[in-house]
Amino acid sequence: METETTVTWHVACQVSDIPEDGGGCALIDGKQIAIFNFARRGEWYATDNECPHRQQMAVARGMIGSQDGEPKVACPFHKKTFSLQTGHCLNDDAYQIKTFPVMVKENLVYIGI
């Protein structure tokens, strides 16, 4: 049985606030959200900023890249690697981060919560 969820869009930042092929962080509804401008792919992603491995707010500072065509981010401290599409940890099945929809419109980045 599928359940419908309502997405509320929040203005997170301006496009220029997030470096190309890098990340930044926004506080939305009291939660730190990591936002990634994957310019090489022409795509935007958003995830929890907290790495579940050691509960550190660091994911937004991670390095982005691809693994077998899948966009990913590596935690800068312990190198746990997460899919930017699904949040699954690509090098340790014990971990996962939440992902959020992203919409870019009129130079603003919106995150769906």
Rank of each mutant, 00 (worst) to 15 (best):
M1I: 15
M1E: 14
M1S: 15
E2C: 10
E4Q: 14
T5Q: 11
T8W: 13
H10Y: 10
V11F: 00
Q14R: 13
S16L: 06
I18E: 02
I18R: 06
P19S: 01
E20N: 12
G24P: 02
G24Y: 00
I28S: 07
D29F: 00
Q32D: 12
A34M: 10
A34L: 09
N37Y: 01
F38Y: 09
R40Y: 08
R41A: 13
E43K: 11
W44Y: 00
W44L: 01
Y45P: 04
Y45L: 02
H53Q: 08
R54W: 03
R54P: 12
R54M: 13
Q56A: 12
Q56M: 13
A58H: 00
V59Q: 08
A60H: 13
R61G: 10
M63Y: 11
I64W: 08
G65C: 04
Q67F: 08
D68I: 02
D68R: 02
E70R: 03
P71G: 11
V73E: 02
F77H: 06
H78W: 03
K80G: 07
F82Q: 06
F82D: 04
S83F: 04
Q85F: 00
Q85V: 12
H88A: 11
H88F: 12
C89S: 05
L90V: 00
L90H: 00
L90G: 01
N91W: 01
D92Y: 00
D93H: 02
A94S: 14
Y95W: 08
Y95P: 08
Y95V: 10
Y95G: 10
Q96T: 10
I97R: 05
P101N: 00
V102Q: 00
M103Q: 14
E106D: 12
N107D: 15
L108N: 14
V109S: 04
Y110L: 04
Y110R: 06
I113H: 14
